[in-house]
Amino acid sequence: MNDLIRRYGVTITALMCLLVAFWLVMLVVVPNITLFEQSFRPYLPVVEVGGPKDFYSFGNYAKVFDGSIERTFFGYAYTIPVHVMTFGLTIWYSIVVTVACFLLAYPLAFFMAKIANPKSLPTLLLLLFIPLWVSEVLRAFAWWIILAFKGPLNALLLAIGAIEAPVRWIVDYDGVVIGLTYTYVLFMLFPIYNAISSLDTNQIEAADDLGASWWRIHMRIVLPHAKPGIASGCVMVFMLSAGSLLVPSILGSTTSQWFTQTIDQWFKDALDWNTASAYAFILLLLCTVFVSIALKVFKVKLSDIAK
């Protein structure tokens, strides 16, 4: 702080602090607190707001348990509230996306950090970044076109003989998983790339010299070293996927429903901001809990990730 004042003078320092404070308080803290407060109050006609029916309760939160449907799981039939199921599927497919991102990003990150010629690295990074210059909406629509039943992907696969009949890609959650993986894979790539770059190549060579196989070098040397990077990539991809609305809306099928879409429906279709807020906080809270548990299980400290 003193350093800032010395460097920029009192006026500019004060201005900077004020702007940051404004951003934090007005754009982050206040809206969240407002929604949080609203989430405990019932959705009422305007005239009744502040009236006797307007009291705090967990009623909005309890709505996730309304309206059950029948399901079978490996022949075992059970009933489950629709919104709970949506939530469970959202978490499950977010995990699938996270794993898919990891499987794609780890080899690429290793290649970039340890194998690629350092001279060609800027070109490689540029190629990876170019898609980010296009808006997320356009990219999602592009995938929608690519994955269409009579779209280019099927045409290509048919042409090279990889498939015999066109495949329906946008069924169930498939389109969503593909779209989310594509959208968020870079959030996995860069933390892992950073982590692997910081690994001394001599350690890989030392393990090699001692006779370690390729697989063991990765399991014992590279992966443990990259664990914080992998963890932070996974947390980011998981949270972003679970919180994504755009991709599930565009690449979803008739049978896919993302929890954010449910929240969106409460906001926009039902115009019930109170319940929508409650659902949003459920998502936030449970995802945070889930991630914390996952970090515990994989023995990663939060401070390692922050590095």
Partner: peptide
């Protein structure tokens, strides 16, 4: 012959010990 197939053991200039073990 790959390094792991040779009867040699190299001690690196920076030692390259495995810090996580």
């Amino acid at each position: 012959q790959r390094p792991n197939q040779r009867p040699t053991a190299l001690i690196f200039q920076n030692l390259a010990l495995f810090p996580l073990m």
